[in-house]
Design a binder for these strands. Structure first.
Length: 1028
RNA sequence: GCCGAGAUGGUGGAAUGGUAUACACGCAACACUUAAGAUGUUGUGAGCUUCAUGCUCUUGUGGGUUCGAGUCCCACUCUCGGCACCA
């Protein structure tokens, strides 16, 4: 008998599959769309057309070319391959593509270390890994291979980035990055360990640098809301929701008063807009209001208001108005542009810049052309304005949101300004009175809270130490009495990394002496603190502290002896805003905690909320106070996606910076912007990427004015590369588009996307966002890329620990394949546990051998079957064979490969017991096994005399009539406990079965009354007896 | 702390509310063998006993619903994963 020589067999068929190209997937495959009805994969979203096979897009996350394939890769690629093969046999046109996520830091590190070109390193790794992947016997369609570091791929990454840029979804912003002062380089988070640089071990500091951001936050709501329509595990949806972290609440403004009455007061300069005047709109009213509060106000009439010219208007104000460091310039509509130009011209710090409904960009959509367009220069030096204006505020009318909302939000962003949105009395703030404007001009601190109903219990206000308001207040001398102490505290927190701020949980803070806030509900003066338990980047960077209803505030209040006040729910419900407040001392509160949270009864007519910190849960209270004293607001934990990297090995950001025209996109014809050659890959000392060293490459012509300009030297985050690679698979060689609409339509959305749980909140969220942005641009056909997603489990070392070189528990799949064969490894991994649940499985070397034993037995059976061609069908095997066909079909559709394999084992056990199997039946067995063990089945299939590949065969169909045995075993229960069993013919009626059962357990029932008999056909009979 | 998932033999795991522990690993005995390995056969949840076609217990713990619960409900314990001063 021939030996099962896995090496020869696997080599032979892998070569055959490659040369015969049987896995090259056509976009449309001829043939009737036929699939067994049991397959869940056909979930109604049919991509089939008449006379064509139905397309099925099976996607696995493409690997990073690290240079070596590990057990996890096998689990990621070889097990879904079972599904790909089974679906193909079941009549689907399955695309199972692969590629490489080839940009990234490891290549650059290797290049620096070994003085190699990162491309050389990467390409070498890819070549090696392709061989390894081929050794798995996977049915990948290599003709669709995508490699992200190739210019014909990243040309489209750049092009897509520019589409987002042109839509205002990509912008530059000062952002803190990890900076190593010794290496003079920006570090990725994974290059920082315990706050130190992984290379030189020096202390990492936070440094602000201009970074490219993508406005994923604009899509926060849709990214949450669209989850509900997806066939994804609830777990994944939930983590995305948590990550985005939407919370609904309100912004409430607390007016502030300074103790120092000689403190410098602001004065106001009002600049009206196109066809406006100092008496038009709300201007005269606002002037009166401000003057009545004792402020100086100037409101010049700008020249030539119907045909305004920038130079003329700016010069007029410059010549006729007094402007000092306390002046707050307020510009309405086009006046906002005049305000900004004016500030650019005076080039001295001023008190503030307030833009009311600004309409200031030539690219501004939906406005009819106006004469002033050509008379104004629309180039504004936002960075300069940021340094000149202390207060920067943009006011937006909610009614105009559709037209201008996105633009205004964008403007606020690049100005790093506060944005206040509310309802104007008349659209575009044209009302005779606009209280929103006035309110925003008064000194105040705005806080965000999800519990506006507890406003009555707010006994102090806390700002994040980095809150811009604090810096502004410190800029004026003698405004705050303890400037030094405040400065020290701010310096201290700035030094703390995020890590420290999180780990050191003891709450500290400093009171701002000399200023008080007014609680708008109680009209009471309350102190203002800075404390690092308040985060600068969340909400408004300021909170109202309600120690009675918030544990953190309680902790802080207890430490600093601040009053703690309970808000009583029953009263709020009964008579909103007229709420009696109960003042509790910290001492009382502590005693209450010791009493298991019960608060003492405080007095006549008051109900005390008894839950510890639970406060009231009155939705009514929240709404009432929000309406009366605040503005509804939704905040998100999600922050914008920083996509620029100061690295060489990535996609160059296709932007040219021009001194005159600003940041300009590279024209389509000049794409791709190819990576320049550089001498070495170490970052440039100024913190720029190594690309900055390619001086010739950096110099470029401005695409707009053709003047001297410079290229952006940062490269894109690799998550951008992987945000659209699955679209390229549908049309990998397209030179004109990233993927044609027609080709996309063949395959998108992805039917099943399998990948690692670690990508749940990164890649998976980014690519969903990217797809939605492309959808809005009309570049893709649907708003969600992946119909179904599943996360894969982890393969651990034999010791149950994560595989790692230091633990010495790494299983090298190449070695196991060498010894036992790819079929064995594939099947072992499929058998280890259910694929559709996230868990972690230790690699059991004995278990692998067990699978090998199974394949040896298959081999032996194959040899003996070939030797006895006279037997075609063994009737005794038929029922179990057909049951197995049914079961495996169902299990594969559910991704339960482990139980599918188990039923193959049961089948083999039955065959061996029987002694022999018929030729035809063996063919069926091989087909069932072929997705799991493609090589051995192909070999045996050909040995049996077949000429074409088993993988092109049709999936076996079971005969329902053959599923039933002649007899069934019925369990006999007495009072629900199993007491015996009895064999009856399958079609016996109830009476027959009950009689047979009664006879079998007669002695137990004797003399007792049977109260009830429960009969479950072909399962059991249960006698319910009296008195047992 | 918050969110999510889970807990079944020595191990990985299997079970539409219907005979819990399929299948595999491991282990034991036997066969083959000089021996080991490989292979095959048989056995293998725990305990009790009169050693059987016997009894009792058993799916993290405690309750409940049901003729019947690993499965449904309530409470708790523990494990793993993610987030974490997010107001």
């Amino acid at each position: 008998m021939k030996k099962y020589d896995h090496k020869a067999i696997e080599r032979k068929w892998q070569k055959y599959w490659k040369t015969s190209k049987i896995y090259t997937t056509p976009d449309k495959a001829p043939g009737p769309a036929s699939a067994p009805p049991s397959l869940k994969a056909t979930d109604g979203h049919s991509k089939a057309t008449a006379g064509k096979k139905e397309n099925f897009y099976l996607l696995v996350e493409f690997p990073y070319p690290s240079g070596n394939l590990h057990a996890g890769h096998w689990y990621a690629f070889a097990v879904p391959d079972i599904l790909a093969r089974a679906l193909r046999m079941q009549g689907k046109n399955v695309m199972y593509p692969i590629g490489f996520d080839a940009f990234g830091l490891p290549a650059e590190n290797a290049a620096i270390k070994n003085k190699l070109n990162p491309r050389t390193w990467t390409e070498g790794n890819i070549a090696y890994m392709k061989k390894q992947i081929a050794s798995m016997g996977t049915s990948f369609d290599w003709s669709r291979e995508v490699i992200t570091c190739n210019p014909d791929y990243y040309k489209w990454t750049q092009w897509l980035f520019l589409q987002l840029f042109k839509k205002g979804l990509a912008y530059q912003k000062e952002t803190a990055v990890n900076w190593c002062p010794k290496d003079k380089t920006v570090l990725a988070n994974e290059q920082v360990t315990d706050g130190k640089c992984e290379r030189c071990d020096s202390e990492v500091v936070q440094k602000k640098m201009l970074q490219w951001n993508i406005k994923i936050t604009d899509y926060a709501d849709r990214l949450i809301d669209d989850l509900s329509g997806l066939d994804w595990p609830e777990q994944i949806k939930e983590s995305q929701r948590n990550w985005i972290g939407r919370s609904n609440g309100a912004e409430i403004s607390f007016p502030i008063e300074f103790e120092n009455k000689n403190a410098p007061q602001p004065n106001f300069l009002l600049l009206h807009g196109y066809k406006g005047s100092p008496t038009g709109a709300f201007f005269s009213w606002l002037k009166r209001e401000l003057e009545s509060k004792g402020y100086a106000v100037q409101a010049p009439e700008l020249p030539n208001t119907s045909e305004p010219k920038e130079y003329e208007q700016v010069k007029y104000v410059f010549d006729h108005c007094h402007i000092d460091e306390n002046t707050v310039i307020i510009g309405h509509s086009l006046g906002a542009v005049v305000a900004m130009k004016l500030l650019q011209k005076i080039n001295r710090p001023v008190g503030g810049l307030v833009l009311v409904a600004p309409a200031i960009d030539s690219a501004f959509a939906n406005a009819e052309p106006r004469t002033y367009w050509k008379d104004f220069s629309w180039d504004i030096k936002y960075d300069k304005l940021k340094t000149l204006a202390g207060l920067r505020l943009v006011l937006s009318d909610a009614a105009e949101k559709g037209k201008r909302g996105a633009y205004i939000a964008h403007l606020a962003d690049i100005l790093d300004a506060q944005i206040a949105e509310g309802k104007a009395n008349e659209e575009h703030f044209l009302g005779a009175q606009e209280p929103l404007v006035l309110a925003q001009l008064m000194p105040r601190i705005t806080v965000f809270t999800t519990r506006p109903d507890t406003l009555f219990g707010a006994t102090y206000v806390v700002l994040a130490p980095e809150h811009p308001w604090v810096k502004r207040a410190l800029a004026h001398q003698r405004l705050l009495r303890n400037e030094k102490e405040i400065g020290r505290y701010i310096a201290l927190t700035e030094k703390k990394s995020d890590m420290d701020r999180q780990t050191n949980k003891e709450k500290t803070g400093v009171r701002l002496e000399g200023v008080d806030a007014i609680n708008p509900a109680t009209r009471e003066r309350i102190p203002v603190y800075i404390a690092d338990y308040v985060l600068g980047h969340y909400g408004t960077g300021a909170i109202m502290a309600v120690p009675a209803h918030d544990e953190r505030d309680f902790e802080f209040a207890s430490r600093y002896g601040l009053p703690i006040r309970e808000v009583i729910s029953a009263q709020i419900n009964a008579d909103r805003l007229q709420v009696p407040i109960q003042t509790l001392s910290a001492q009382t509160r502590n005693n209450a905690d010791k009493n298991g949270g019960e608060l003492p009864y405080m007095g006549e007519g008051l109900m005390i909320d008894s839950g510890r910190f639970s406060g009231l849960t009155s939705q009514k209270g929240r709404e009432a106070i929000t309406e009366e004293l605040g503005v509804k607001k939704t905040t998100y934990k999600l922050r914008d996606w920083i996509v620029s990297r100061q690295r060489y090995w990535g996609v160059p950001i296709p932007i040219i910076h021009c001194g005159k025209c600003g940041s300009q996109p590279v024209g389509d014809v000049d794409l791709p912007v190819e990576l320049p050659e550089v001498k070495d890959y170490l970052p440039e000392g100024s913190g720029k990427s190594p690309l900055a060293k390619a001086k010739k490459w950096v110099a470029a012509k401005c695409p707009k004015c053709a003047g001297e300009a410079e290229r952006e030297t940062d490269t894109l985050d690799t998550f951008v590369d992987s945000s659209w690679y699955f679209l390229r698979y549908t049309d990998p060689n397209n030179k004109k588009e990233f993927a044609s609409k027609e080709k996309q339509a063949n395959w998108m959305p992805v039917n099943l996307y399998s990948g690692g749980a670690e990508h749940t909140t990164m890649h998976l969220l980014y690519s969903r966002f990217w797809h939605k942005a492309l959808f809005d641009l009309g570049l893709v056909g649907e708003s969600e890329p992946y119909k179904r997603r599943m996360n894969r489990s982890l393969i651990l070392g034999p010791d149950g620990q994560k595989m790692s070189k230091s633990r010495g528990n790494v299983i090298d799949p190449d070695l196991v394949v060498e010894r036992l064969g790819a079929d064995t490894v594939r099947m072992y991994l499929a058998f280890i546990g259910p694929y559709n649940e996230v868990s972690s499985y230790p690699w059991n070397p004995d278990g692998v051998v067990g699978i090998r034993r199974f394949l040896e037995r298959v081999w032996r059976m194959g040899q003996s079957t070939v030797d006895s061609p006279q037997l075609t069908v063994n009737a005794n095997i038929e029922p179990v064979l057909h049951r197995t066909v049914k079961k495996i079909g169902e299990d594969i559709a559910l991704l339960k490969f482990n139980t599918a394999i188990s039923s193959l084992m049961i089948l083999l056990n039955a065959i061996e017991k029987e002694g022999a199997i018929g030729q035809e039946q063996f063919g069926v067995f091989l087909k069932l096994l072929s997705p799991f063990a493609p090589h051995i089945t192909e070999e045996l299939w050909h040995e049996a005399g077949n000429k074409s590949s088993i993988h092109l065969e049709k999936w076996p169909v079971f005969d329902p009539a053959l599923l039933r045995d002649e007899n069934v075993t019925i369990a006999i229960q007495i009072n629900g406990r199993t007491r015996g069993e009895v064999q009856v013919p399958t079609d016996s009626d109830k009476k027959t079965v009950e009689d047979a059962a009664l006879a079998a357990v007669g002695s137990r029932v004797e003399g007792k009354k049977i109260l009830r008999t429960i009969y479950v056909p072909s399962r059991l009979v249960n006698f319910v007896l009296e008195g047992e």
